[in-house]
């Protein structure tokens, strides 16, 4: 199956508490922090590779195309996904400030119309803006069915449809979705048995998590093709639907941490604070 995976770069999520606000308050700056692929998008790449390979062999069952939107250096993010094993890249050059979930969805729609993938596999949310919206908006714009927050993904009928286990508030909701479709992935999709493509042996267990790029993968990625386009080339409406008027840091928690060594001391303190 042909799968399109949009990958956003985000500033190092494990150091998100180090982002700063510019003096004017109208910008978030991540100076000094490394760019990383959005972890959910990395999981989407992993899920796409699992769907498109005969587990344990080098045989491929379909093409995986990765795409990133942002300033020209997001090329690096595309290369990283190519090094993991994706086949081809698309780069949409624009300023981050030109993008919100709606613009991203419109741009992706234009790419989908050119590329005609069977599946668009996205992360459920970009962990910088934490919007959790682009995939759903894309599905609606395309008039495609969707399954968000996927924790399991299995191809049925040779790719005609997908069975998706969705991680929801109240448990696991299972949907059967015809392709072409949009699926957004949640953390558990990269569990050892998360993805089955009809050829995956029942007892095949993947390593937990997204795969690392091998040295060979990194070498090969240098030769893989990346198409560059602008938002203009896509001919979409580019205006933002949202305007951030200001940013601020959350108030620090007041009070300090009191360390205790025994349960008795803890209970005494909790009682004194009247919280038990």
């Amino acid at each position: 199956m042909k799968i399109l995976v949009p990958v956003k770069r985000v500033c190092d999520p494990d150091n998100a508490n180090k982002v700063k606000i510019s003096d004017s308050g109208d910008d978030v700056t991540s100076e000094g922090l490394e760019w990383k692929p959005n972890p959910f998008d990395e999981y989407a790449v992993e899920a796409a590779l699992r769907l498109n390979e005969k587990a344990g062999t080098t045989e491929k069952l379909g093409e995986t195309v990765v795409l990133s939107m942002g300033p020209s250096d997001v090329q690096q993010t595309v290369r990283q996904a190519l090094a993991m094993g994706a086949d081809r890249g698309i780069l949409i050059e624009t300023e981050d400030s030109e993008l919100d979930s709606a613009v991203v969805a419109r741009a992706l729609k234009a790419v989908v119309e050119e590329e005609e993938p069977d599946l668009v596999l996205l992360g459920k949310q970009a962990v910088d803006g934490d919007s959790n919206a682009a995939g759903q908006m894309l599905a609606e714009m395309l008039g495609w069915p969707m399954a968000t927050f996927a924790m399991t993904l299995a191809t049925d009928d040779g790719g005609e449809s997908l069975t998706v286990g969705r991680e929801v508030d109240t448990g696991v909701l299972t949907l059967k979705v015809q392709t072409p479709a949009v699926v957004t992935v949640d953390l558990r999709i990269v569990a050892p048995q998360g993805v089955k493509n009809g050829e995956t042996p029942d007892d095949h267990a993947y390593n937990e998590g997204a795969r690392y790029a091998s040295l060979k993968g990194i070498m090969q990625a240098k030769k893989k093709k990346i198409d560059s386009k602008s938002l203009d080339d896509l001919g979409i409406e580019t205006g933002l639907t949202t305007e951030y008027v200001k940013f601020e840091l959350p108030p620090a928690r007041t009070g300090s941490c009191e360390f205790v060594e025994t349960v008795d001391e803890l209970v005494e303190k909790l009682n004194a604070a009247k919280v038990l």
Binding site: D100, S101, A102, A105, D130, S131, N132, A133, A134, G135, Q136, M137, L138, A139, E140, M141, M146, T148, F149, R166, E167, V168, D169, T241, T242
Partner: peptide, 23 residues
């Protein structure tokens, strides 16, 4: 913004060409 709202509402937003403001 439960998983229900997060799933449904952006789809509604795209349908009426409105902004999504989440969570």
């Amino acid at each position: 913004a439960s998983t229900y709202g997060k799933d449904l509402m952006p789809r509604v937003a795209a349908r009426i060409e409105a902004a999504t403001i989440s969570d």
